[in-house]
Amino acid sequence: MATRRRVSVLYAPGTNTEIETMEALRLAGGDPYLVFLKDIIKGKVRITDCSCFVVPGGFSYGDYPDTGVAVAELLREHLTLLADSGIPIIGICNGMQTLIRAGVFFGSGLAMAENESGDFVSRPVLHRVEDADCVWTRGLEGRVLVFPAAHRFGKLEGTGRVNVVMTYEGASPSGSKVAAICDDTGRVMAMMDHPERPPDSEQGLAIFRNGLTA
């Protein structure tokens, strides 16, 4: 029987989707652990001690002073280590905002803006998986996946180069066509919507299984 791969799921105060994310990872065959941001900072836990790293959704540090800023700032040096490690990483919703703001995965030319509606948007949305060399969506190219959106700052902006992994099919919750991107290595994916809702969604599990077997 194959050993389950250890997955670190980051928890910062204000994170609010780690439980369902861990359940989805467990169903996908992983061995998820909750890793507290403060333990990483204190050196109790090494950010690279895992086979896969997940930054889940929520409102880390209350989104103060802006979405994703606090975690990106407090973990900056550790995220650099993580980026250099080659470990598959996925940032979901607030996790995407954090990874973008950190600037170490996708460069410094990108930012997350408020949805064009100016509102938080919670509704099911369709995502077309594009041809991108991304480990998280391998084998899913061309498919249209349904996950719920739940965000207010979900519009990717900037002049940085992006590898688009998923685009919105039909109405976009953010106003942007882009739903998910990956870095140049194809191992780091950031997406605004929620493949972990519900955790037993086969479409979501397909993404997590990919990350766990990369």
Partner: peptide, 21 residues
Amino acid sequence: TQYDSTVQGITYQGPLYGENY
């Protein structure tokens, strides 16, 4: 739709439904 109705991943029928949600 400004209220998150799917967080926790436990919603089976939420506050809205239908093909246009």
